[in-house]
Amino acid sequence: MDTVVARMRLLDETLPPGDGVAVFNRVYLAVTEAVDQRIGTGRGPGPGAAATLDVRFAERYLAAVDAADRGRRPPACWRPLFQLRRHPGVRPLQFALAGINAHLGHDLALAVVDACRTLDCAPGDLEDEFDRVGDLLTTLEERIREELMPGPDLLLLADPLTHLLSAWSLERARDATWSAARALWALRRVPDVAGEFTDRLDAAVGFAGRMMLTPLPR
C-alpha cells in the first residue's frame, strides 16, 4: 500500500491543480492516507485481505493513469475523464464524481475478483472488506461534496449541475458493483462470456461518466 500511496502523492505534486485527474487524485489521496492507517482490522480470510483488496483496487486507477500518460487507451470507464480533464466547461465537482464513478463502477468489481484469485477465496468471503471499501468511497464522496460543491447561493435548482448530481447515486452504484463482482466470479470458468461481460460493464460505466462530464454553462 505504501507504493500505491507514494504514486498518488507523486501525481498530486506533478499534475496541474486544475487538471481533472488531479482534482480526483487529490481527494482520493487524502482519504486513502487516512484509511491506510486502519488496514488490517477487517474480518476477511486472513490479515492481508483488506490490504490485498485495497492495493488491487488502487492499482487499477494507477494503471489507467499510466496508460493515458503513455499514449495508450485507458479503460472506457476512465476515458471521459482523461479526454475532458482540461475542458474549461467542466467543473471540479464533475471531475471528482466522474472519477468515483469509474473507480467504483468498474475497478472495484474487477479488484474483488483479483483479490479472490490472490487469496483463493470467494467474493462472499470478502464482503466485509467490500463494505469497508464502499464506506471509504462514501467518505470520499462526502469530502468531494464538502470541498467542491458550490455554495447554497450558487447551486440553484435551475443550475444544470443540480440535475447531474441528482441523477447518480453512490449507493445504487455500490450495489450494482457487488452484483457485477459476484457475476464475474461465477463466470471465471467461461472466459469468453466473462470478457464480454467485463467489456459491457466498462462501456456502461464510461457512458455514465461521459454524461457526468457534460460541459455546463457557468
Rank of each mutant, 00 (worst) to 15 (best):
residue 152 P to C: 06
residue 48 G to S: 14
residue 138 T to G: 14
residue 108 L to D: 00
residue 119 L to I: 08
residue 192 D to I: 13
residue 26 R to K: 12
residue 22 A to T: 04
residue 50 A to R: 03
residue 69 D to H: 13
residue 12 D to Q: 15
residue 120 D to C: 13
residue 28 Y to L: 13
residue 21 V to F: 10
residue 216 L to V: 11
residue 212 M to Q: 14
residue 67 A to G: 02
residue 6 A to C: 07
residue 141 E to F: 06
residue 167 A to F: 05
residue 138 T to A: 06
residue 18 G to I: 06
residue 77 C to A: 09
residue 161 L to R: 05
residue 170 L to T: 14
residue 74 P to D: 13
residue 142 E to D: 14
residue 111 A to K: 00
residue 50 A to S: 09
residue 143 R to C: 04
residue 41 T to I: 15
residue 56 R to H: 10
residue 32 T to F: 03
residue 95 F to E: 00
residue 154 L to C: 12
residue 201 L to H: 03
residue 172 R to C: 07
residue 215 P to G: 08
residue 57 F to W: 06
residue 212 M to L: 13
residue 76 A to W: 02
residue 86 R to F: 12
residue 159 D to K: 01
residue 207 F to A: 14
residue 184 L to E: 01
residue 94 Q to P: 07
residue 138 T to N: 09
residue 167 A to E: 10
residue 68 A to S: 10
residue 154 L to T: 15
residue 150 P to N: 09
residue 24 F to R: 00
residue 87 H to G: 02
residue 128 D to P: 04
residue 33 E to M: 07
residue 61 Y to V: 01
residue 82 F to C: 05
residue 77 C to N: 05
residue 66 D to Q: 12
residue 77 C to V: 09
residue 212 M to E: 13
residue 145 R to Y: 04
residue 161 L to Y: 09
residue 157 L to S: 15
residue 4 V to H: 03
residue 93 L to P: 02
residue 134 G to K: 07
residue 44 G to Q: 04
residue 88 P to F: 10
residue 27 V to Y: 08
residue 181 A to I: 02
residue 174 R to T: 10
residue 115 A to S: 10
residue 95 F to V: 03
residue 199 D to R: 15
residue 207 F to H: 14
residue 18 G to Q: 09
residue 98 A to Q: 05
residue 138 T to L: 06
residue 175 D to M: 12
residue 157 L to K: 13
residue 95 F to G: 01
residue 153 D to T: 13
residue 58 A to K: 01
residue 128 D to F: 10
residue 218 R to P: 03
residue 184 L to R: 02
residue 204 A to L: 10
residue 84 L to R: 05
residue 62 L to Y: 00
residue 216 L to A: 14
residue 200 R to Q: 15
residue 180 A to C: 13
residue 11 L to N: 06
residue 5 V to G: 04
residue 111 A to L: 04
residue 136 L to H: 12
residue 109 A to W: 01
residue 12 D to A: 11
residue 23 V to P: 00
residue 141 E to Q: 15
residue 98 A to F: 04
residue 200 R to N: 11
residue 182 R to G: 02
residue 46 G to W: 10
residue 101 N to G: 11
residue 49 A to Q: 01
residue 7 R to L: 05
residue 181 A to D: 10
residue 99 G to H: 02
residue 94 Q to L: 07
residue 11 L to C: 12
residue 129 E to Q: 09
residue 72 R to Q: 15
residue 63 A to W: 02
residue 87 H to K: 05
residue 204 A to F: 03
residue 29 L to N: 03
residue 65 V to M: 11
residue 176 A to I: 15
residue 191 P to I: 12
residue 35 V to Q: 12
residue 120 D to E: 15
residue 3 T to Q: 10
residue 66 D to H: 09
residue 17 P to C: 11
residue 101 N to Y: 04
residue 61 Y to F: 14
residue 150 P to L: 07
residue 156 L to N: 15
residue 187 L to T: 09
residue 134 G to W: 07
residue 182 R to V: 05
residue 105 G to K: 00
residue 31 V to D: 06
residue 189 R to H: 13
residue 149 M to L: 13
residue 160 P to A: 04
residue 61 Y to H: 08
residue 179 S to G: 14
residue 1 M to Q: 06
residue 115 A to P: 01
residue 46 G to S: 09
residue 160 P to T: 05
residue 57 F to D: 03
residue 112 V to A: 01
residue 145 R to K: 09
residue 197 F to S: 06
residue 19 D to W: 09
residue 124 G to W: 03
residue 149 M to C: 12
residue 175 D to P: 01
residue 83 Q to T: 08
residue 136 L to P: 07
residue 70 R to L: 11
residue 95 F to C: 04
residue 130 F to T: 00
residue 214 T to C: 07
residue 153 D to H: 11
